[in-house]
Design a protein around this nucleic acid. Structure first.
Length: 822
RNA sequence: GCCGGGAUGGCGGAAUUGGUAGACGCACCGGACUCAAAAUCCGGCGGGAGUAAAUCCCAUGAGGGUUCGAGUCCCUCUCCCGGCACCA
């Protein structure tokens, strides 16, 4: 109590009080029955965190606050908001950290989860703690393994030996998506190539659907665009080039080399052929004389790490195989080369080189002194215009036999059809998307539920035997063998074949963490059901997710895999929808004092410190006030004073109103309140939190103007509108205002009354030739004649109109009046 | 190179989608309260001219254009951030 009898706002005390009350009353959690019987279900999702040893960072807080504000707003407007949280606790992060600490992740993870839970409660998330998931819990990963089996049984999981990205530091295989610029996403070590047998999910089978659905899902444009590019559809043709016995002989060997090209129209300019070093036909076409040179080149390419291999600015290298093939359009013999600028992973691993109209081929042809032919003439060019560089623009075909004069686009169709008549070409769509390698030669993940039997081959673990428990290993250090540490636990991997009962061996690889996170949202509503991954009724009630807010760093990994897994489960009859998230919004990044936050810079904000000092409510409000959620913002240490003062003044104002405020509402103030209601109601669902908060600040300033103490009815709507941002404080003030129960129960969001918000007079700008010369205050809806008369009476306006002829008058009612003179 | 997003006071950011640029907040300056400081409250705050007021000029990355009127639309350019990248 302070001397004047009013209580002081103590964020720490208020927040602690309401955390306890929420828990006691179960304010934020649903019982199983409540989940089953919801009237207006709303599934509000945020990206579950990886529980690091460092604890929650501001980036997490920012995202979670943005999502939590959304959930709380939906709840205040009468929805049953299900807002769960969980822990994505498997994976290389935890494993590496455990190795460094000399601890077992099985001991480390529960500790981290405990700390995260404490922080998530402290920040005031509206989490349903009775429906949480932990990916490392056998009760969860049992179903992750079940999902593997669904794909396995449907023929969508495939074991194949493939060149993979190998991180020599993490000693494991990485997905293409985890290789950033030739370096390991986690430790930044240069990645090498290796060939290992791996399990792949055939996501490429879904490429077109994943692409098509982007058109109708309500997602952030940036995220959709990233997925669009990642899928990388391109239309072209597969063309067949018959291999010849020799340069001078017309005889073909019967072998064809297939190429994928987006420019079949330029085939008359294909003057040589290039195979990637890994291409299986290299040995077939290489002549005896060139065998050694080719072998050396291939072995150099194999040794090269992916960084060096993928450098686009290095000079092109290659070697002639000695072999020739026929250009199917010209029937001329063209030489076959091997060069590492052709990648085995895309298309067919072979290209027809058209140096005249492809920059890379041009560069290679120049280096190797190969012939360059023009087959497209752009504007002001003809068949003989010399080529100083590759011409990739539009034009008409030249030097192309019967197709001369045809446009580039028509030529593509016509030439492909013409080659097709001879069985040498067909239209083809290609995608950049690769199949998803889910095998990891590590310890800390769910074992892939497969048993290898000498007689039966790979056999899926029967569903009733799930989960395949991850054994506790004391030595889980990965090694250079390319095999998971689980291969050291013989008692674990030795088992009987489920089909024939003979001695067999378990798969010792574990699955990718992205598999864990590809379906966690499907699990949340069903955590009360141990016997199924997704309960039918719960899934029908709550899914798909209504709103998902998260970081765009997951645009092409997590979000693509979640869509894929959902689509597969739909096709297999487990779900009745094929897109998991109705709405997705990517939040922006936050910086501190204009600089990126990073541990190495030492400028990372520790949420615990800020919350201790200012309270979670102030922290939340400030984070949301910094800028638009979708654009991010800049955290300035002094800036938090604004929201801090705002919440203090709100507290004081409510206190004094309760002690005895004004008898009746002031119409001016009431107008401001309703204008604020209108603005907040419109902007909060659009995630324009910064401007909504600004409006509330203005509203409080208006309420307090002139040191006035408002009536309770005047301050109450503001307390509700602030609730999504400052939930603890709002509960406290709601109670002080004499209400029982939670402010979040019973749809308290204030109703907007347009009549009360209406202004009766407006300022109209008066311009002469577009320059502001005065303003007039007029009743709303004043007509031009009246406004003009008033404006002409203004001294400063009259001055400019004196000796000028008014040619035109532009009147925008309630806004502006412009005299055009001249 | 390609794709996406930006550039507005000392700073973070507003601007009814073509109609009074700078809301709200931070920082700063002045004042009140105080023995003093903190906290709080009141006032000021883009630049320039003007003793001041009135008023005028300039100003939304740069340059041009459309328009009665442009931060907003069109063209050209510069820089910054994010993603993809020898993808045939």
């Amino acid at each position: 109590m302070s001397s004047d009898g009013q209580r002081q706002y103590s964020p720490t005390a208020v927040e602690e009080k309401w955390r306890v009350i929420w828990d006691e009353r179960g304010t934020n959690s649903f019982t199983t029955e409540e989940l089953e019987r919801s009237q207006r279900p709303y599934f509000n999702l945020m990206m579950f965190p990886y529980p690091s040893a460092e604890g929650l960072h501001v980036g997490n807080m920012y995202a979670f606050t943005g999502a939590d504000v959304h959930g709380r707003f939906k709840r205040l407007t009468g929805h049953d908001v299900f807002e769960p949280i969980g822990f994505d606790a498997f994976g290389i992060h935890s494993e590496n950290f455990a190795l460094k600490q000399g601890m077992n992740p099985m001991d480390l993870i529960p500790r981290n989860i405990e700390n995260f839970t404490r922080q998530l409660r402290a920040f005031g998330g509206m989490y349903d703690w009775s429906h949480t998931v932990n990916t490392t819990d056998p009760a969860y990963y049992r179903w992750t393994q079940w999902i593997f089996l669904q794909l396995f049984n449907a023929g969508l999981a495939e074991r194949k030996e493939a060149p993979v990205n190998w991180c020599p530091s993490c000693m494991t295989v990485l997905a293409n998506e985890q290789v950033i610029d030739g370096h390991c996403e986690r430790c930044d070590t240069a990645v090498e190539q290796r060939r290992i047998a791996q399990w792949f999910f055939k996501i490429t089978h879904y490429a077109q659907r994943l692409l098509d659905n982007l058109r109708h899902i309500d997602w952030s444009e940036t995220t959709k665009k990233a997925q669009h590019n990642w899928i990388g559809r391109s239309e072209g043709a597969t063309l067949h080039f018959p291999v010849r016995e020799s340069a001078d002989s017309d005889t073909t060997t019967g072998t064809n080399i297939e190429v994928f090209t987006t420019r079949p129209d330029t085939i008359f300019g294909a003057t040589y052929m290039v195979l990637s070093p890994e291409h299986p036909l290299v040995d077939v076409v290489t002549t005896e004389a060139q065998r050694q040179a080719v072998a050396e080149y291939r072995s150099d390419a194999a040794k090269m790490d992916l960084v060096a291999r993928q450098k686009t600015d290095k000079t092109k290298t290659g070697v002639f195989t000695g072999g020739f093939c026929s250009n199917p359009a010209t029937d001329e013999a063209i030489p076959i080369w091997v060069a590492d600028y052709v990648l085995m992973e895309y298309g067919t691993g072979a290209i027809m080189a058209v140096p005249g109209h492809d920059e890379r081929d041009f560069e290679f042809a120049r280096t190797m002194d190969l012939s360059i032919v023009r087959v497209v003439a752009g504007p002001e060019q003809d068949a003989d215009t010399p080529l100083e560089e590759a011409y990739v623009g539009p034009g008409v075909l030249v030097n192309s036999g019967d197709f001369d004069g045809s446009g580039v686009e028509d030529g593509k169709q016509a030439i492909t059809a013409w080659l097709g008549e001879r069985g040498l070409g067909e239209l083809k769509v290609n995608y950049k998307l690769h199949d998803w390698c889910i095998s990891r030669q590590r310890y800390w993940g769910p074992p892939i539920p497969v048993i290898y039997c000498d007689d039966c081959g790979p056999v899926g673990v029967p569903e009733e035997d799930l989960p395949v428990l991850l054994p506790r290993l004391e030595d889980f250090q990965p090694d250079d063998s390319g095999v998971s540490p689980l291969a050291r636990d013989e008692a674990w991997y030795r088992t009987a074949c489920p089909q024939c009962g003979e001695e067999a061996r378990r798969e010792t690889d574990v699955s990718d963490t992205f598999l864990d996170s590809s379906w966690y949202f499907l699990r949340y509503p069903s955590t009360d059901h141990d016997d199924v991954p997704m309960d039918g009724a719960m899934t029908k009630m709550w899914l798909p997710v209504d709103c998902y807010i998260g970081g765009n760093e997951h645009a092409v990994l997590h979000l693509m895999y979640a869509r894929f897994v959902t689509m597969v489960l739909h096709d297999l009859g487990h779900l009745d929808f094929e897109e998991p998230f109705d709405r997705f919004r990517a939040h922006g990044m936050i910086t501190r004092n204009g600089a990126k936050m990073s541990k190495s810079r030492g400028n990372v904000i520790t949420p615990d410190d800020i919350i201790d000092r200012y309270g979670a409510d102030t922290f939340r409000t400030y984070l949301m006030f910094m800028g638009p959620l979708e654009e991010g913002g800049d955290y300035r240490d002094e800036g938090i004073q604004g929201p801090y003062g705002f919440l203090h003044r709100l507290y004081e104002t409510v206190e004094s109103a309760v002690q005895g405020g004004a008898e009746a509402a002031d119409p001016e103030v009431e107008r401001k309140i309703h204008q604020t209601i209108a603005q907040a109601t419109e902007q909060i669902p659009n995630l324009q939190y910064n401007t909504a908060i600004a409006a509330m600040m203005e509203c409080l300033n208006a309420i307090r103007a002139g040191g006035r103490t408002p009536a309770r009815s005047e301050i109450e709507p503001l307390v509700v509108m602030v609730a999504p941002f400052a939930p603890h404080l709002s509960e406290e003030l709601w109670e002080r205002l004499g209400h029982d129960g939670s402010i979040f129960d019973g749809s308290q969001w204030p109703a907007f009354d347009p009549e009360k918000a209406k202004e009766d007079a407006v300022e109209v700008a008066v311009q002469v030739n577009g320059k502001l010369r005065g303003t007039i205050r007029v009743p709303v809806g004043t007509d031009q004649e009246a406004a003009e008369a008033l404006a002409r009476a203004e001294d400063n306006v009259a001055r400019y109109l004196e000796d000028a002829a008014v040619r035109r008058v532009i009147y925008v009612p309630n806004r502006l009046l412009n005299f055009v003179v001249g």
